[in-house]
């Protein structure tokens, strides 16, 4: 049976979906990913869907599930590289994936995760400090 590979990159897990997912494959991915988060203690999950041309409500729900499950295991999920046509369709379908972080590409996704996790480590840091740091 086909499997979607899950790569470990430091504190993060990276999943690149390259094929059109049929249901069984998506369900397996959900299970594998949650297992991996638990096993590796990963703090973040990146799901790259830049090669995916269709996300229907089933796929959307799987992504939502992964995010919620990871959250319980203390890892943030970022969906990266969504195609414009897919984004428009999801919104029209009424599935805006609330609660899932998004980024333009893997690099930005990593950056986002790093910021999120840093913030978690130093909760007293607020936005103003972040700006003065940048100066």
């Amino acid at each position: 049976m086909e499997k979607i590979p899950i790569l470990r990159m430091g504190h993060f897990l990276l999943v690149t979906i390259q094929v059109d997912l049929y249901d069984r494959l998506a369900v397996n991915l959900e299970a594998d990913l949650v297992q991996m988060v638990n096993k590796t203690g990963a703090r973040g999950v990146l799901i790259d869907i830049s090669a995916v041309s269709i996300v229907d409500s089933f796929m959307g729900r799987i992504i939502g599930n992964i995010a919620n499950m990871s959250k319980i295991l203390d890892a943030e999920t970022v969906v990266v590289g969504m195609q414009p046509a897919v984004a428009i369709t999801l919104v029209e379908l009424g599935l805006p994936l609330q609660g899932v972080f998004t980024a333009l590409n893997v690099e930005r996704g990593m950056e986002l995760l790093r910021n999120r996790i840093d913030l978690d480590l130093n909760p007293e840091d607020d936005d103003d400090d972040a700006i003065s740091d940048a100066d």
Binding site: V79, V80, G81, M82, P84, V86, A87, I88, L90, V91, E92, P96, L97, T102, A103, L104, N105, R108, G109
Partner: peptide
């Protein structure tokens, strides 16, 4: 709202 949601899904 739809436009904003779609933009957000793209990560912007």
């Amino acid at each position: 709202i739809k436009t904003v949601s779609a933009t957000r899904l793209m990560g912007a």
